[in-house]
Each structure stands twice: as C-alpha cells, then as structure tokens.
Design a protein around this nucleic acid. Structure first.
Length: 589
RNA sequence: GCCCCCGUCGUCUAGCGGCCUAGGACGUCGCCCUCUCACGGCGGUAACGCCGGUUCAAAUCCGGUCGGGGGUACCA
C-alpha cells in the first residue's frame, strides 16, 4: 500500500504561499481576510467587496490559481476492499479550470422543503442569502424541494410563500413567479433528474449497487471495521456478479463513486475545510425504484439553475464533500458549468444546547406574525444571530443590512434564540414607525380582537386616529394595542371591569375616591384633558390629600376597567363626558 | 468509534498582535422620570474554557487539551 508514501507537497489544497500558516480559529473569516490582505493589499479590498462574493474555485486556496499538477492521485488508503489486482480509478475528481469569472453575477437560492411549519432557522438562512445577493446586485432563485412525497404538504408550501412575502424576502425567479430555469418545484423535475442520472450511470462516476443495508452492516461487523456507511462492495462488480444479483430479482440503486484523495473547499463562512474522502463513503443518488434522492437533486438543481453561492445551514456541512465531488462530475459531463462557492451558516439553537427544533414553540416563524411582531423586528433580530452591523449598534433596516452585509463577517458559532431580545429588538423597530403606520399595521389585530368593526366604521376610524397616539408609543408588539383600546370602543352594555383590579382598587376607599371624582367632574364646563386633570387634582390630591398613585388608580379602574390603561385624563376626554360620568357612577355599585 | 464544525459576560455579539484595567445590546439589579403601564435617562453586575509555545507584547498567531454540537441513511 502506498499509504506510507509521503504526500507530495502542495497536494490538492495547500496554498502556494507555503509561508502563510493555515489558520483556523474561532474567527476563521478574519484569518482568511488577513491572509489575503497580507498577500496583496489590492486584492484584499477586492475580496472584501466583490470577490468574497465570487471566491475562486472552492477547492483552491483563496489566493487561488494553483495548478493541480502536484495533486495527489490514486492514493489508496485501503478502503472499500479494493483488491490489489483491480484497476484503480484516478481520473475522476480531477480539479479543472472552471469559468468562475469575477464578473459573473451572484446567484443564490432559497430551497426549503415544504414539510411542517417554517422554522426561524430557515428564515435566518434565507435572510443571509437575500442580503448577500442584494448586496452584490445578484439574483435569488426560489426553489421548492418537495421530493419527499410523504412529508411535503400544500399547507406548508403556502405557509412558506406567505411567510416570505410577509417578511419581504423577495426573489427574482422561482416558484410563483417563474423564470428561465423552471420548473421550480422539484416534484415537477423528474425528467431532468432521470436524464442526469442516466448520464451518470453511463459514466464511471457512479455504479449500480445491489446491497441491502443488512448486508453492509454484516460485512462491517465481520471485518471488524469501525467505519460506518457503505463499504464499496459493488464498486467493481463483474458482469457475472451483476447478472447473479439481477437473477435474484434485485434492482439496484445508483451510487456515486467517491474519488480518492482529499476534498478541500474554502468555505465562505469558515475558511478552508478538508475532508479525506476515505471518510466519505459512496452515497446513494437514487432509490431502487428510480426515485432521485436529495443527494442528487440538490446539487443538480444548483448546477442547472446556475447557482454561484450556496449559503446553507451548518447541518449540511458534512454532505458538502459529496456534493462537491458530484458537482465536479457534473461539470465533466457537461451538465454543470461551474461548482458553486459554499458557505455554512451556524445553527440557531433553542433552550439548552439543542438545535431549535420544530417542537419548540419559538421555532415557528409565522407565530411571530400572530404574536404581533413586525417583519422588520423579526428580521433584525435574526440578522443579529451570527452577524453584526457595527460594534455598538443593533437596530437597523433591511436596506442598511443589505448595504453592509458581507458573508465573510458572519460568525461561525451557533447562536441561541433569545425571545426576550427578539421582543426588545421588535420594540425598538416599533418605535421607529409613525403612529399612522402602527395604526395601519395594528388594524388587523384590532379587527380580530373585535375592538373595531370590520370593515371599520367612520366613527371607529375617527376614534382610532385620536386614540392611537396614546398607545403607539407604549406597545412593543402589535397585539398589545387591542387590550389597551378596548374600553374606548366597547358598547356601554358590554363594558366590564377586570374583577381582580376591581377587588384591589374599588374597595370602600376606592369608591370614596370615585365618588369625589364624580362630584368634581360632573359640573365641569369644558371636557378636556387639561380641565379633567385640573379638577381631579384639586379634588383628590389637594382636597383628599391623596398620593397621585392612590388617587388615580380607582378612577382608572372605574373608567377603563383596568389598572393598566392609556393615560387617564386623555382617555377620559376621548371617552366623552357622558360615558365617563356614567362609568364613574356605575363603579359606585 | 470515526470524521467535521464551534468555543469572549447568563444570552447575542465587537475584537484583524500594542488602541483591552475587553466595547455594545438583551437580561438582571439599583436609582431617576411618572396618574397605571410602556417609553426615556443614569448607574451597577457579569466573559476571553484550560495548558503550553511564538513574540518586547497574545482575547487575537501556533500546538495540545477539555467542553459543546453535527454527521456517519435507498431522510432532507
């Protein structure tokens, strides 16, 4: 075996600048940039603003352009039970010059699976793709990965589209809008996959495999191998062996033949990542019934849709060497033009140290809309999970984000989803809105809660316009407007007071305060905020020598029904003399 | 087991060898404002996982270690 042979220098992956250390730290992105800057200040700038977008071939060091002559070939690590007399494939997986011109436009994709309720991690990934593409003036393709017939649902599909539209994550081609690379639902691309699969089978990049899982496991156990995954048994089947399997009635799956050697790519978020392919078993491209698998369709569609940058979740990182190898095969077969740049975004974690799962209530993105979040608020918060616009600032618009966004600035470590902070960010975004805007956005919630009529009557609209300034500045979510405004809109017959608040504040003392208030207000000439306040202060603070807190509490409960309300005097002005006095009266029992 | 990723306050982050007795935000605690709530203002709390190495100088570079996470499918 040649396993002990020293590796040729510069094999496949090392940079020409051998003096430059291969750095890997928690801020790998910084190291990359630093290296680049040192290498050539002019390029450092380029990289930051343009090239980071359009990194060279993923198998090359960013400083790129190394010939692959010295690349390790045919390194046999003894895996896959290859017999010594068998020929060894060495030609595949030979990196080649690819047409990754700096000027080719950025193309990214959203590619959710319509299974279940869309997850905030999915939204964060989409947001970074969006910001990246928009920053570079690129295009976004929206593809629906619905190959899993069992789990894909129309409800989920609709929820995703609705969510994306609500968030304003727009796309240039894909589902719902069409485009030149359609269809954009994988379930409608069966012919394409069949065709690609056929070409792969004709080539030596793949082979038919007749093994069952149990057989593979049994062989692993028998050999004492600790490796997991497929063992390469069917790699070089003779015609006789093949015929024997077929005679047994077995139908094969198509397996990709992983090349020897190592695979390195320059991850847009993490820097160089290398896998020895001995640790990457041959993988299935299709089921025995011919159905293509994700392992095939995802890279094929990226290739066919001419995706230049694949920014996806960290959970897919370990499948990247397989995809890269397949993509290179597809390039060799003329199916793909080039291999995209890959970048792996960190996880969004939930409570504890687990990836936020669909079981966690915080995971459901659409729930935030129902809870009264602004799309700006959710997006702003999600952007903060792994990215920062500046050292001392975390409130920004999507416009500001797309201007500032650089994928190389994305922090590779996983982030925990913090609902409190999400709410605080949302609150800050809320304060940036005008009262008119908040009114407009709160309207569906007010209708839903039955506070205003639907459609809104003129009277309700008028009152709302006067009342919203009182609440707009004190709510942190859209849903908080309804409970604050209810007392103003409710019919007198339906007006009720919170029993707890009544018990606490409308005791004997409280009723005395209400009586005094009634007396002070019933004769008031002008029913205005200032006049009401003046009258009550004279009667309660000066007359009864009450602390303001003690004085106005009972009045508040009497008039608004709650301990917590918009400012009292303004509220009473809006409510009007008659209704205010009637409520004071009715509170007396 | 094997492979890969990640490691700065409780949480999200800034940090690009000296601007760091480590900055901001959320949370939390205290105070102020105040008719409730919310907003707003002021102040406090709290972190470079550990051990080596390189260097005049390390949160930052290198190695190791420990810890966390993911993958290891005819799922995606």
């Amino acid at each position: 075996m040649d396993r002990d042979r020293p590796r040729p220098a510069g094999v496949h992956r090392r940079s020409p600048g051998a003096d430059l250390p291969q750095r890997r730290s928690r801020a790998g992105r910084l190291d990359r940039r630093h290296d680049l800057r040192r290498a050539d200040p002019r390029r450092a700038h380029l990289l930051r603003d343009d090239v980071a977008a359009r990194r060279p071939h993923p198998h090359r060091h960013p400083r790129g352009c190394r010939s692959h002559a010295g690349r390790r070939r045919g390194r046999d690590l003894g895996r896959r039970h290859r017999r010594p007399d068998q020929p060894r494939r060495t030609a595949i997986h030979q990196p080649r010059k690819l047409s990754t011109s700096m000027s080719s436009p950025v193309r990214v994709r959203f590619c959710p699976s319509p299974t279940g309720s869309p997850h905030v991690g999915l939204v964060r990934t989409a947001l970074f793709n969006w910001a990246f593409a928009r920053h570079h003036g690129g295009q976004i393709v929206f593809r629906m990965e619905d190959t899993d017939r069992e789990r894909s649902t129309q409800e989920s599909y609709d929820a995703i589209v609705e969510l994306w539209r609500w968030l304003g994550l727009d796309w240039d081609e894909g589902i719902e809008v069409g485009g030149p690379h359609g269809p954009y639902k994988q379930s409608e691309r069966g012919d394409i996959y069949r065709d690609v699969l056929a070409r792969l089978r004709e080539s030596s990049y793949s082979y038919d495999c007749f093994c069952t899982n149990d057989e593979v496991t049994a062989r692993r156990q028998a050999s004492g191998s600790k490796m997991q995954g497929y063992d390469g048994f069917c790699r070089d089947l003779s015609d006789e062996q093949r015929a024997a399997f077929e005679a047994e009635g077995r139908s094969p799956i198509v397996r990709f033949r992983m090349p020897d050697g190592s695979i390195t790519w320059n991850d847009a978020v993490r820097g160089d990542i290398t896998f020895e392919t001995e640790n990457v078993p041959d993988f299935a491209l299709s089921r025995a019934n011919g159905d293509p698998l994700y392992t095939l369709v995802n890279p094929v569609d990226d290739a066919l849709m001419e995706i230049t940058h694949v920014l996806r979740g960290e959970d897919l990182l370990s499948s990247t060497p397989r995809q890269l190898a397949l993509l290179e095969a597809l390039v060799a077969l003329g199916v793909a033009k080039e291999v995209p740049v890959y970048g792996h975004l960190p996880y969004v974690m939930g409570q504890g140290n687990k990836k936020l799962s669909k079981r966690d209530p915080e995971a459901h993105a659409l729930a935030y809309r129902e809870q009264g979040f602004l799309p700006e608020g959710l997006l702003n918060y999600l952007a903060l999970l792994g990215w920062a616009i500046a050292a001392d600032r975390d409130i920004f618009s999507m416009q500001e984000m797309l201007e500032a966004f650089d994928i190389a600035d994305v922090n590779p470590n996983p982030a925990r989803f913090d609902l409190k902070k999400a709410e605080a960010i949302n609150a800050s975004q809320m304060r940036l809105l005008t009262v008119e805007d908040i009114t407009h956005r709160a309207l569906p919630f007010l209708k839903e809660a039955g506070v205003v009529s639907d459609p809104v009557s003129d009277a309700d609209a008028q009152l709302l316009e006067l009342a919203m300034p009182l609440v707009a500045e004190r709510i942190n979510k859209l849903t908080e407007a309804a409970p604050m405004l209810g007392f103003l809109f409710v019919d007198e017959a339906d007006f009720v007071r919170d029993p707890d608040d009544v018990a606490k504040l409308l005791d004997d003392t409280g009723r005395g305060v209400v009586q005094a208030s009634y007396d002070a207000l019933s004769g008031l000439h002008t029913w205005s905020t200032a006049a009401i306040e003046e009258a009550l202060r004279v009667a309660l603070i000066e007359g009864m020598e009450l602390k303001p807190r003690m004085a106005f509490g009972p009045v508040r409960v009497a008039v608004t029904g709650k301990r917590i309300s918009p400012p009292l005097f303004e509220s009473m002005e809006l409510l009007g003399r008659e209704r205010s006095l009637a409520r004071l009266q009715s509170a007396l029992g």
